[in-house]
Amino acid sequence: MTSTTEITDLQTLQGQLRLKILSLYNQAHAGHIGCSLSCVDLMIATLVLRKREQDTFLLSKGHAAASLYVCLNHLGEISDEVLATYYLNGTTLPAHPAPNKHKGIPFATGSLGHGLPIGSGIAQAGKLTGDDSRVFVLMSDGETNEGTTWEAAHFAIQHELDNLIVLVDKNGLQGFGQTADVLGDTASVQTWNAIGFETAVVDGHNVAEVLSTIDRLTATPNGKPKLIIAKTVKGKGVSYMENRLEWHYLPMTETQYEQAKDDVNERYLALTTVQE
């Protein structure tokens, strides 16, 4: 069970990384803010807190790269100086992750539907080698529209890749509409469970719950790949962005940036501020 202190620490981290994300997007005057805020808590749970040296983390929804960059910065794998080059000419941190530039970014992503096949290959290699490595793949719910998702899913089931842990950032919005209105619920837990994944549904902004679910699913090898449906809110933490499709695309004005920071400070960091 997670203690109150640990929960407070997690909340502080969630707030601090959100502020960094907002700062990056403000500096770059760039979009995809809602996408990053939707999944940053899942990255805190996996990339920051559960990934071991021998594990791999793949951000399949590469458009949330800012979230990946701040997490790697938090881990010391991307320096403050490099982070400050985000979106600038000559950067190694473009809007979508680049190949061969940072150890924590094993593959360039940005075209959806690539992470799960690659992750399955890494997991298969781990099985073939006989090591105890695990692979975390973070996908968007819209991404489960992609045919490669289903090719890879069946590969993972057939090859009993229980070292593969897939997280679906299920915020219910995709590029040009609600997932329910586009192709229906391709991230349905019933579907994934029926085809052979071991599944769980969590609050994707409750880091402690995500952590305990990962630990539970991976406690005993059972030959089943894992899928965690994380119910999330696009733009989580910034009141005017939450559940709004336009924050897949829009950059912030200065006024909006100030309000966004206020929202995050109030929701995540007020307790810390009081203690200070």
Binding site: P117, G121, A125, T129
Partner: peptide
């Protein structure tokens, strides 16, 4: 490995295995 009638996944899987040294 017979990856089935799923060529895109076959190449993605290959990239993942190559990343691990194969």
């Amino acid at each position: 490995i017979n990856a089935g009638v799923a060529e895109q996944n076959m190449v993605g899987v290959a990239a993942g295995m190559a990343y691990k040294g194969y």
